[in-house]
Computed example of a mutant assay.
Amino acid sequence: MRTELVSEPGDPARPNEDFAGVGLPACGQGGSLVVLDGVTPPSGGTGCVHSVPWYTARLGGALTELTVSLPDVPLAEALARGITRTAEAHRATCDLSHPRTPQATVVLVRWSGGGVEYLVLSDSALLVESPDGTVTPYLDDRLSRLPRASLATDALIDTTLRNKEGGFFTAAADPSVAGRAVTGVLPRAEVRALAALTDGAARWTEKFREGDWTDLFGFVRKQGPRALVDRVRALETADAQARAHLGRSKTHDDATVVYVEP
């Protein structure tokens, strides 16, 4: 099995809000991966005494353990259990009903001899390559389909869209959002390799148009996750009008890539 993982903060002076992990059972058969992209909160606060990296580390650790130790539990249920476990760790000290309580996007994959199970929640991406070289993206595109006007301010997003019907969903403190994730199971024979990316790394395709998802996958396969993140950083740095081109305030975002040939 080939596994490569890179996770880099957008700003070296700030903690990385992403989480990535690969779990391998002691029996030596199968495995799982977890990729989380912590949601950077606005300056107004979150109702929580903990940071986003604290949250993603807690949730990511729980999901890495649950996806390996409970192989017969569906990934949506594993996510619900992980959210519940993490919420209980700070319910007594924090306002978990706050719309900006620490939260994250999620990609989970678990493979065995028989199949490959996947879950995607919010705007991180999962790419799966079949034996004939076809690359299929598995995406939760609800956020990208929303009208730009509905995303005009943080307050508007929080009151009308964030973790609400007709909007988009992230893993925060409510385990029921696990039921909103994009999920499925693929026959093991139809999966040669896969890659999970946070949106900071997916900018290569989604923002800078360096190629489509198949091109991105080929880049990672040949040159590795480190090369993809380095190329994204070079594109960001060269873009003198980052706000206009990227359509967001961050010139650099946390970027994570996990590549697996199970």
Rank of each mutant, 00 (worst) to 15 (best):
L24Q: 07
A26W: 07
V34W: 13
P15M: 10
G38R: 07
E4I: 00
E8V: 15
A20W: 01
C27Y: 04
T3D: 14
P12C: 00
F19Q: 00
V39S: 13
G28T: 06
G30C: 01
V6I: 12
G30R: 05
G10P: 11
P9Q: 05
G31Y: 06
G30M: 00
G10Y: 06
D37A: 14
A20Y: 05
L5R: 07
C27T: 14
G23T: 11
G31A: 05
C27E: 12
E4D: 15
D11M: 10
Q29S: 11
Q29M: 02
A20M: 04
L36G: 09
D18C: 02
R14G: 04
E4N: 04
P25W: 10
P25Q: 07
L33S: 09
V22C: 12
P25A: 08
L36A: 08
D37S: 14
D18S: 01
P9E: 02
G31N: 05
A13V: 05
P15I: 07
D37L: 09
L33D: 03
G30L: 02
P15S: 14
P12S: 05
S7M: 09
G28F: 03
S32A: 15
L36W: 11
R14T: 12
S32Q: 06
P9K: 03
L33K: 07
E8L: 14
G31L: 06
L36K: 08
G30Y: 02
P15C: 10
S7Y: 08
N16T: 05
F19S: 01
D11L: 11
E8H: 08
V34F: 13
E17Y: 01
G23N: 12
S32G: 10
T3W: 14
E8A: 13
S7H: 09
T3M: 15
T3P: 04
L33I: 13
P9T: 05
D18H: 04
D18W: 03
D11C: 12
G28P: 00
V34R: 13
G21S: 15
Q29R: 12
E17P: 02
P9W: 01
E8F: 00
L5S: 05
G28Y: 06
V39C: 14
D11H: 12
L36S: 09
V34E: 13
V39W: 00
L5T: 13
L5E: 02
P15L: 10
P25M: 09
C27D: 15
P12N: 02
L36P: 00
V34H: 13
F19C: 03
L5F: 04
V6G: 03
G30P: 04
E8D: 12
T3A: 15
S32K: 02
V35F: 07
G31E: 00
G28L: 05
E8P: 00
G21R: 14
G10W: 05
E4M: 11
G10N: 11
L24V: 11
P25H: 09
N16E: 09
P12Q: 02
D11Y: 10
L5I: 15
R14V: 14
A26Y: 00
Q29V: 12
V22N: 04
D37Q: 10
G21P: 08
G21I: 04
G28H: 08
G28A: 07
V34I: 15
E4K: 04
G23V: 11
A20P: 02
G21W: 08
L36N: 09
T3G: 09
A20H: 02
P12G: 03
G38W: 08
D11T: 11
G10H: 07
